[in-house]
Every structure is written in C-alpha cells, then in structure tokens.
C-alpha cells in the first residue's frame, strides 16, 4: 500500500540527481533552426564569394584566402555574426519555454555550469581564430572554429544531455578533415554548423521533446 510513496521517492531521487548535475531543457527545435540559419548564412556567403571571385579574380583562384579583401571579410563577418546572434536568441527563447514547461529553472546552478563549460573552450577558440586572422592564416579559421566548437560541445556534455558529445565528435572529425581542404572552409562550415545541428536537433526533438 506504501508502494506509491516509494515510487514517488525513487522518482524524486532521480529527478534531483539529474537536475542538480545536468541542465536538460535544451530545446531540440532550436538546434534545427540554428542549422537552418547556418545554411542560409553559408548560402549568402557563397553568393558573395562567387560574385567577388568572378568580378575581381577571374582566372585566379578566388578561394585563396590571402586574396580576400577587407570588404569581403567585413561582409562575411556580418553574415557570421547575424547567424550566431539569431541562433543564440532562438536557442534561449525556445529553451526558456521548455524549461518553464518542465518546471525547471532557466538560470540555476546546472545551466550556469553548462554555459560556463561550453563557453570556456569556445571563447578560447574565438580568440585563437582572431590570432589566425592577425597573422593572415585565414584558411585555418574554418577548421579551428569547427574543432573548438566540437571541443566545447564535448566539454558541455558533462552538464547536459550526453548526446551532445556525439555532435561534438562529429564536429571534431569534420574539423580535422577540413584542415586538408583549405579554401573549402565554407562547405565544411555548412556541413558542420548547418547539417550537424539539424540532424542533432531533430534527433533530440524526437528523443526528448515529443511526448
């Protein structure tokens, strides 16, 4: 007759263990949308690159990063920043919604820990990429972003759903492969930040969100 109480106890234990150590309200849909933004951004970047290479460097390899003008870098930066801002804002909005629905606090110990551990490798990577640009090694920026993002995901996986670990691994593999194809960074970016996010987001959505 006390069986119900015991069952409640067990579920309370499980709930507290996961809530105190992992932030589990990350929204799957936000992953899909982030991927879509990335693909759209990559599309714009591709058009811009093509336009430029046909206008200025006809006959030359437009892909060679040392030929990139300031104009182009500015445009690409604008595209990249808008994609990131859009993805982060969407992610936060959808995650807040999901956290509210499941009664989890948005900004508690576990989410703080998650954000901190995600940002640490990511910001390191960001700073490193700026250094690469500083020395004119822009060709390595795409692999570096993919690699550091992958490492950030793996580091963050300790504090949220473990599945994000596999996405991190995918990013690292894509990042390493892309080091052998300098100049094709955009395609690898689209593959990683676009496709990987969409696949991961969809998997998470079906695994956790749809009930």
């Amino acid at each position: 007759m006390d069986s119900n109480k015991y069952l409640d106890d067990i579920s309370e234990i499980k709930n507290m263990m996961s809530r105190s150590s992992r932030f589990i309200s990350l929204s799957g849909i936000s992953g899909i949308l982030a991927g879509c933004y990335a693909l759209i951004g990559a599309g714009f970047a591709y058009l811009r690159l093509k336009e430029l290479s046909s206008a200025n460097y006809a006959g030359l390899s437009g892909r060679s990063s040392s030929l990139w003008g300031n104009d182009l870098i500015q445009d690409l930066t604008v595209i990249a920043v808008s994609v990131i801002v859009l993805a982060v804002v969407t992610g936060i909005i959808l995650t807040v919604k999901k956290a509210k629905k499941s009664g989890e606090k948005m900004w508690d110990v576990s989410s703080r820990r998650l954000v901190l551990n995600f940002l640490l490798p990511l910001l390191t990577g960001g700073a490193f990429c700026l250094v690469l640009i500083q020395y004119g090694i822009a060709g390595l920026v795409a692999p570096a972003t993919l690699l550091f993002y992958g490492l950030a995901c793996i580091n963050a996986s300790k504090y949220t759903m473990r599945d994000i670990r596999y996405m991190g691994l995918a990013f690292i593999i894509i990042g390493l492969i892309s080091t052998q194809f300098i100049g094709y960074g955009l395609y690898f970016w689209a593959l990683g930040f676009g496709l990987c996010h969409i696949v991961y987001g969809a998997l998470m959505h079906f695994k956790y969100d749809r009930k």
């Binding site: 106890d9 234990i13 499980k14 263990m17 105190s20 150590s21 110990v109």
Partner: peptide, 22 residues
C-alpha cells in the same frame, strides 16, 4: 531525500544551491 540525491552526484553543494533546487 533531495539533499542526499544532490550530494550523491555533486562533490559538494552550498546552501543556496540546495535551496534553489529543492
């Protein structure tokens, strides 16, 4: 039960963290 569950999976927790979670 909650306090013990939290302390089983975390090396330590401070008062505020326990309060927030519980």
């Amino acid at each position: 039960l909650g306090i013990m569950s939290i302390l089983m999976v975390n090396d330590y927790a401070d008062f505020k963290m326990l309060k927030e979670l519980l």
